[in-house]
Design a protein around this nucleic acid. Structure first.
Lengths: 315, 315
DNA sequence: CTGAAAGCGCTTACAG
DNA sequence: CTGAAAGCGCTTACAG
């Protein structure tokens, strides 16, 4: 009893006993049993993080940021990968909910999976990151998808290109759709054709670009909507012998480390990835502690154009 | 009571009652409380995974493999990043031990940290991955470091290079030291000079290579001992205007996705990264279930030379 | 300021 | 085959 009070810093423990308890704790190497503590309705001081793929550079940086922010607040994080499978994601949310964690930071596989409705209505708070849920309402943190697409198109138009193509994968994600939509609207307002190539997966980049570059719609510039897509485009263009930055310009959404190492270097829309992770964690911890407004919080963080060589600059 | 027996598949529950219990469970959405279960001394069905950095491609692939292998066995995994800080690592091991997890897969920051002795002597099993502990004994899984270094040197010598330099970072890691030692021994046996450049961090690659290439020891070929080091070398050579594959040959230990995208493509010693993760998880689960031999198990998995252009092949 | 009592939700013997 | 009892290690009122 007195030990419990001492550990939890309750008032009304005399200094003398507190000291004796501390000494005994040290001597015996006593550690409170978390399972027992949980059973009395305490917080677990842990949060869950579910991402589609830890090996994706975008998500590995996010994981790192979440982990650090959580640690600073005395929280530990359960990381799980959904492997882009909604069923796995559902199982993981279930498991975490019952494990238990106090809250979950989630990058959903699909914004419309039915199980998300259940999860969002559950008792523990959820904050989505990068991709917000469409069929339920939770706090969310994401980058300015539309502004990023606009910046990319504007920059390409500044180079004088008029035949600009958008190449996208993962079109089922709301973030990707927003980027594609913004791309189309911007070009439409500029009275230029807004053409797009939606790929079912990265493997179809090569056949897709082969026929695109063999057609009359051969583009002068490409806007690729995320890192996996950009990399697939680069590989396909290399295979086709089409020189990036000379034969065709390229800007990718998402910046990746090795874009400065390949030649030409790749111009990219850079997201504040660590900041996304930190913000989501902060928001979640606030919810866990019952702070924050009653309505959902939707945070959008700014992106930046990182000019390198693939767009035609610095040739 | 009967519910408990039904859930845990104990014998001596009549089919009729079992059915009724199942139905009630479904109807009420009942889920057993894990905290309570833990309190009676059950396994948590979770393992911990601690790596220096989740954003490192090597460790993110390992994380993925561990996660998948654990999931297949009905286990979930706590992932934590030690950020290359032994104190953080110590805190994470502590936290996991008491959380509790049934076992830990660990890639130690340093093979000689004193806290590892305590951890290895603890009650829950630990399996090290990529880097084995020197001051205590645990099961371990790693790649054939020496054989990999030998293959690299042998291949470079096959190209006729006689002035081969080893460039290394993270020399405090046993795996790196093994690679460097094997490099030296191989060249010594071939009666060739075995020179090396040990860098304190990747930032010192540029100054280090600048003076190396300005000296009389200017190498014809470089063997870089891990992916971070190889990338730093590539960047430094690019900055110096030294053409890889023409002015100097390069082989890196660890294969990385984008090595096929940069020009020249990078020849690498490829580790069976996913296999390392799966094997470590399998070993850990065996220990948790009290299987496996009494003595420590040390698994070494084979590596492979992936020939590309940077070594001088396919010029 | 300190301690005895009850209970969190399970499981493990022990009786029926 | 089924249930009542005790206990896992904590915390939250409730008495002193």
């Amino acid at each position: 009893m007195t030990v419990s009070r001492t550990i939890n810093g309750h008032p009304y423990v005399s200094d003398a006993t507190a000291k004796r308890v501390q000494a005994a704790i040290r001597k015996l190497g006593y550690r409170p049993n978390l399972a027992a503590r949980m059973l009395t309705g305490q917080l677990s001081k842990s949060i869950g993080l579910i991402v589609p793929n830890v090996a994706d550079p975008f998500f590995s940086v996010i994981s790192r940021a979440v982990q650090q922010a959580a640690r600073e607040a005395g929280y530990t994080v359960w990381l799980a990968a959904s492997d882009n499978d909604p069923a796995t994601e559902e199982a993981e949310i279930e498991q975490m909910t019952h494990h238990p964690v106090d809250g979950i930071v989630l990058a959903p596989v699909n914004c419309r999976s039915k199980h998300l409705k259940v999860a969002a209505a559950g008792s523990i708070p959820i904050v989505t990151i990068d991709r917000s849920i469409e069929i339920a309402s939770t706090d969310s943190v994401e980058a300015e998808n539309r502004a990023g697409a606009n910046m990319a198109v504007e920059h390409l138009m500044g180079h004088g290109y008029t035949k600009i193509h958008c190449v996208a994968t993962d079109f089922h994600l709301r973030s990707i759709r927003l980027r594609v939509e913004a791309f189309e609207e911007y070009l439409r307002r500029a009275k230029l054709p807004a053409r797009k190539l939606i790929l079912s997966d990265t493997a179809s980049a090569l056949p897709g670009l082969t026929s695109l570059f063999g057609s009359r719609q051969r583009p002068q510039a490409i806007f690729a909507t995320n890192n996996a897509c950009t990399i697939a485009v680069i590989e396909a263009l290399q295979t086709l012998g089409i020189r990036i930055g000379r034969d065709v310009a390229l800007i990718g959404f998402d910046d990746v480390n090795f874009y400065t190492i390949i030649r030409p270097t790749i111009t990219a829309i850079s997201q504040p990835v660590s900041e996304l992770g930190r913000t989501a964690t902060r928001l979640l911890l606030e919810r866990i502690h019952g702070q924050g407004p009653a309505e959902e919080v939707r945070v959008t963080l700014p992106v930046a154009l990182i000019t390198r060589a693939s767009c035609g600059c610095k040739r």
